[in-house]
Design a protein around this nucleic acid. Structure first.
Length: 571
DNA sequence: GGTGTCTGCCCC
DNA sequence: ATTCTGC
DNA sequence: GCAGAATGGGCAGACACC
């Protein structure tokens, strides 16, 4: 099978915005100009009113949801942690998110702050933007993958150091999920203000165009390109842009918005052509070129594999399909267990992509990607899917995912579904209270659901209640909504990877290692049956116990299938 | 200090 | 989380 | 039907401004 597809003739932009640029805004009535004080929600409504009859424009909040992978079981190699480097590679991965020092100082401080050196790259930013531009016009994923991996190979030939900052630009992130303090803290308003000041347009002009076009990137590009440039700015490089983005994220405190704007202005002034478009979109966290994490990961595996091949063998040798696929699987598995591009990429470069499963494995202190469940409508649908297999069902609790880590040094961390460090949010939880034998338990990783708990009534409260809890700087006194952890899995125990074991075995570990404390730490209610009536009853029961339905999981076997069944609304 | 606005790799 | 899209 | 990408509602926090 060929790896490249003929690109379809019917290419069309990912958004319906481009063709309309600057065309339909003539004769726009101005009475709809929002007053500066209007909330963004109102602005959105205005916008929708004005474009009524046309197809929907990209509205606000095009947030990129973090991608979840299955923790697919790689063929068990019997390798345990003895072969794993005990410390993270020298990449300087910040691993103590709680104490990330707050940079209140000058912009320059942030720029020169800790270990930015390994993000250096002299690749012109314009080259990245050219690739983005190409991808935006393509819908075939295979074609996109080809373009991406070709580009990755090209920059690696210059220096493999280029790969990390470039990858981060492609996935539009500033670091791993679990590294705190990497939010840009920018929204459409601040960006519009910055564009307006940099490009010499009035705020109302920009807003009007935004209402019409719905893409600040296009607006910035349009405005930049008609601006006379007195002197030629130095071209932007990948390393520079990436470091600046991180600096923007790390800027906080008083006048932080001014400082952020200053950093953006500096870059925007140096932008030429399409650079402005993608720079602004990156800052909005809305790259919207039809390329996201999964595709980048596949492209990376292809690039790293070919790069590897090129080095030790004749260049441009065609890699067999099965080799390519196994490389993809390896890199996917590694990334599920260690969701950190720096670690995975460096490990590939150092040990080769085929040895990832020996060096990139889960470890307490790094949140692994959760396994995903397929939503199903009814019980019999599940029975079809699991026919012949032994499966088990658990309540699906209406709370927040909590991946609880106990580290060798005795510290504990709690990560959200998206790998965010939520430890601060639960000061009252101490996992050691729920461990049977503290002498023999050095470290572990548990999978739980944190649920708001009514201590007086001894029952579960809805998610809305949980979400009213404080998030930052939470002291014990602040805790008004109690939480009960419902554990349903254990993924690692004393450096032993359990993800390749069957759920049945993992449950045995779980109950052996931990202990129930009613109202604080309990096991997810479960049943193992394939009887339709029993299951239906169990589903109804779960809803009566304020749960959302059931999670249905394969009990044995290496190939984990998981489904969820939604219960009836209780309203 | 309080209030209003904006933002979030937010959570579901 | 749900919905939309291309394959 | 699948995988990947795009989008939504609601709440606490951060910052700007008075």
């Amino acid at each position: 099978m060929s790896s490249s597809l003929p690109s379809s003739a019917g290419k069309k932009p990912k958004q319906a915005t481009l063709a309309r640029f600057f065309t339909s805004m003539k004769n726009k009535p101005t009475e709809g100009t929002p007053s500066p004080k209007k909330s963004s929600k109102h602005m959105l409504e205005d916008r929708m009113d004005n474009v009524s009859g046309e197809e929907e424009y990209a509205t606000k909040k095009l947030k990129q949801t973090a991608v979840t992978h299955t923790v697919a079981a790689p063929s068990s190699m019997g390798s345990n942690f003895s072969s794993i480097p005990s410390s993270a590679p020298s990449s300087g991965v910040a691993d103590s998110p709680q104490q990330s020092q707050r940079l209140v100082g000058e912009v320059e401080d942030a720029l020169s702050s800790n270990n930015n050196d390994h993000y250096s790259s002299n690749i012109p930013y314009s080259e990245v933007c050219e690739v983005f531009n190409k991808i935006e016009a393509i819908s075939s994923r295979l074609e996109i993958i080809r373009i991406c991996s070709d580009f990755f190979i090209k920059i690696m030939k210059q220096s493999s150091k280029n790969l990390i900052p470039t990858t981060y630009l492609f996935i539009n992130r500033l670091g791993p999920d679990y590294e705190a303090g990497l939010e840009l803290g920018l929204g459409e308003n601040l960006l519009m203000k910055t564009i307006s000041e940099t490009c010499g347009k009035s705020m109302s002009q920009i807003k009007l165009k935004y209402k019409d076009i719905g893409d600040l990137g296009e607006i910035a590009m349009g405005a930049r390109n008609v601006q006379p440039t007195m002197f030629k700015p130095k071209p932007l490089t990948v390393g520079e842009v990436f470091k600046n983005l991180r600096a923007i994220a790390k800027t906080q405190g008083k006048d932080s918005q001014l400082k952020k704007m200053k950093l953006i202005k500096r870059m925007l002034t140096a932008c030429k052509g399409i650079e402005a478009k993608f720079l602004i979109r990156s800052l909005e966290s809305k790259l919207r070129i039809g390329l996201a994490e999964k595709t980048v990961l596949i492209s990376l595996s292809k690039a790293l594999l070919l790069h590897d091949e090129n080095r030790e063998d004749s260049p441009d040798k065609d890699v067999p399909m099965d080799v390519l696929e196994s490389a993809q699987q390896k890199i996917r598995d590694a990334f599920c267990q260690v969701p950190n591009y720096e670690i995975v990429i460096n490990s590939c470069l150092e040990h080769g992509i085929m040895n990832l499963d020996k060096y990139c494995t889960l470890r307490p202190g790094i949140p692994l990607k959760p396994m995903l469940a397929k939503p199903t409508k009814a019980i019999n649908e599940v029975l079809d899917r699991f026919q012949g297999e032994t499966f088990t069902s658990e309540y699906k609790y209406d709370g927040e995912r909590a991946q609880v880590h106990l580290l060798n040094d005795g510290t504990m961390r709690i990560y959200s579904r998206n790998g965010e460090n939520m430890t601060e949010r639960y000061p009252e939880i101490n996992i050691t209270d729920f461990i049977q034998d503290l002498d023999t338990t050095k470290n572990l990783i548990l999978d739980c659901e944190a649920v708001a708990w009514d201590k007086d009534q001894g029952k579960i409260l809805p998610f809305q209640v949980l979400s009213t809890r404080k998030r930052k700087d939470v002291e014990l006194n602040d805790v008004k909504v109690k939480v009960c952890l419902f554990a349903f899995d254990i993924l690692c125990y004393n450096d032993e990877r359990l993800i390749n074991k069957s759920l049945k075995e993992r449950r045995e570990y779980l109950t052996k290692v931990t202990k129930v404390v009613p109202g604080e730490f309990q096991y997810a209610t479960q049943i193992t049956t394939n009887n339709l009536d029993e299951l239906q009853k169990f589903l109804d029961e779960s809803v009566n116990h304020s749960c959302e339905g059931l999670m249905v999981k394969m009990l044995e076997g290496p190939d984990p299938i998981m489904n969820q069944v939604k219960g009836q609304e209780t309203g």
